[in-house]
Simulated scan of single mutants.
Amino acid sequence: MLELRNATSSDETDFLRLWQGFCDGYGMALPPEVTAFTWTRLMDPACPLTVRLAVLDGVPQGFAIHQHHPSTWVMGDDGYLEDLFVAPEARGQGLGRALIEDLIAIARANGWRRLYWLTEITNTTARRLYDRFCDNDGHIRYRMTL
Results as ranks from 00 to 15, higher is better:
residue 1 M to Q: 12
residue 1 M to A: 13
residue 2 L to P: 05
residue 2 L to R: 02
residue 7 A to C: 05
residue 7 A to Y: 09
residue 8 T to L: 10
residue 9 S to N: 13
residue 10 S to E: 13
residue 11 D to G: 08
residue 12 E to H: 06
residue 13 T to C: 13
residue 14 D to L: 03
residue 15 F to H: 07
residue 17 R to G: 06
residue 22 F to C: 06
residue 22 F to M: 07
residue 23 C to D: 12
residue 24 D to L: 07
residue 26 Y to P: 02
residue 26 Y to E: 00
residue 28 M to E: 12
residue 28 M to T: 13
residue 29 A to Q: 09
residue 30 L to T: 04
residue 31 P to M: 01
residue 35 T to S: 14
residue 37 F to V: 15
residue 37 F to I: 14
residue 39 W to M: 09
residue 43 M to W: 13
residue 44 D to C: 03
residue 45 P to A: 03
residue 47 C to Q: 04
residue 50 T to A: 13
residue 54 A to H: 00
residue 54 A to F: 00
residue 54 A to V: 01
residue 55 V to C: 11
residue 56 L to K: 08
residue 57 D to R: 01
residue 57 D to C: 02
residue 57 D to F: 00
residue 58 G to R: 01
residue 59 V to C: 08
residue 60 P to R: 01
residue 63 F to H: 10
residue 66 H to W: 14
residue 66 H to R: 12
residue 67 Q to R: 14
residue 69 H to T: 10
residue 74 V to C: 09
residue 77 D to N: 15
residue 78 D to M: 09
residue 78 D to I: 02
residue 79 G to K: 01
residue 79 G to W: 07
residue 80 Y to H: 14
residue 81 L to M: 08
residue 83 D to H: 11
residue 86 V to G: 07
residue 86 V to A: 05
residue 87 A to G: 06
residue 96 G to Q: 05
residue 96 G to H: 09
residue 97 R to T: 15
residue 97 R to I: 11
residue 99 L to W: 12
residue 101 E to K: 04
residue 108 R to N: 10
residue 109 A to I: 02
residue 110 N to E: 11
residue 113 R to G: 08
residue 113 R to H: 07
residue 113 R to P: 04
residue 119 T to G: 12
residue 120 E to D: 14
residue 120 E to T: 11
residue 124 T to H: 05
residue 126 A to L: 07
residue 127 R to F: 02
residue 127 R to Q: 10
residue 128 R to I: 12
residue 129 L to Q: 07
residue 129 L to N: 08
residue 129 L to P: 09
residue 131 D to I: 05
residue 131 D to V: 02
residue 136 N to Y: 03
residue 137 D to S: 10
residue 139 H to T: 14
residue 140 I to Q: 15
residue 140 I to M: 14
residue 141 R to Q: 15
residue 143 R to H: 14
